[in-house]
Design a protein around this nucleic acid. Sequence first.
DNA 1: TATAACCTTAAAGTTAGCTTGAAGGTCAAC
DNA 2: GTTGACCTTCAAGCTAACTTTAAGGTTATA
Lengths: 135, 135
Amino acid sequence: MKIGELAKLTNIPASTIRFYESKGLLTPTTRSANGYRLYTQQNLEKLQLIKFSQSLGFSLNEIPLLRNENDELNHTVIIERLEKKQKEADILIEQMQKKSQRIGSLTTLLNSYWDKGECLPEGKLNELLKVIDYE
Amino acid sequence: MKIGELAKLTNIPASTIRFYESKGLLTPTTRSANGYRLYTQQNLEKLQLIKFSQSLGFSLNEIPLLRNENDELNHTVIIERLEKKQKEADILIEQMQKKSQRIGSLTTLLNSYWDKGECLPEGKLNELLKVIDYE
DNA sequence: TATAACCTTAAAGTTAGCTTGAAGGTCAAC
DNA sequence: GTTGACCTTCAAGCTAACTTTAAGGTTATA
C-alpha cells in the first residue's frame, strides 16, 4: 500500500510516517518504480508498535532499543526496560499526586482568608510557600 | 540586590531571571546608574511565587493570570484556575496509572511466553496491542 | 593598571516530535 | 490535455522554557 493508505488505516499523518522513516524507525519494504513508498502489513504492525510504545511512555529514541522482540538474549533486557519505565511512571504519579494535594491545600488556605473577606496578610504568601514545601 | 545575588539566593540562573523579565513576569523595581538590574525583597518573593506556580503545573503563560492576589473580584477566578489545574493533574494521574498498568500487563504477558522458552507467535504482538487497548 | 568577576543586550541554539512549505514528478478521470 | 489528487525531497517552522554565545561595559581587588 502507498503512504496515503497507510496513513488512513492507522490514522497517522503521512508526514509523521515520513518523519519516523527519517529517524530510522520504519522503512518501507519497497519502493515502486516511480519512487513511491510501498508498505506491507508488517510495516503497518511495526508502525502500530511504535505508537503503542509511545503510549507506554517510551520516547522515539528509546523505541529501537525496545524492538528486537525475537532476539534470544534480549528478553531480559526488554523486561528490564519495561520495568524501568514503569518505575518512572510510578514516580511521576507520586509527584503529580503531591502536586494535586498542594493545589488543594492552597485552595483551602486562600478560601479560609477570602471567605472572611480578608486579604492575604503582607508576606503571608511567602510564608505559605515554605509551609507547602514544593520540590 | 543585583541579579547575581538574586540568582544565588533563589538558586535560579541569572539568565533565567532575565528570560522571565523578557516574558513580562518579573521586572526589577529599579536600575542602577550603570544599567544594572536592582531587585527588592518583594521581587525575590515574586520570583519564588513564579517557581511555586510552576511547581503546581502552571505554565509561564498562565502565571500572569494567576497573580493579582489582592485584586478584589479575582479571588473566585484564582480559585477556579487552581481547581481547574487540579482536575488536569488528576486526569494526568489517571492516565499515568493506566500506563503503568499497561506496562505491567505487557511484562507479565511477555514473561509468560519467554519463561516457557517460547517466542512471541507471529502476529501475536499485534493482537496484544488490541487487547491492551491504549488510547 | 591589569585582570577577574561582575553586568549589559540581542540573537541564536537546544530538545522532542512533529507540521508546513516550496518546488516538482505521477497518474486517473473528464 | 488539463485538472486534481496523489506522491517525492529538502528545508524551515513550531512550542516551551530555557541556555549559550558574542560583543562589550563596569567594578573590585592585587
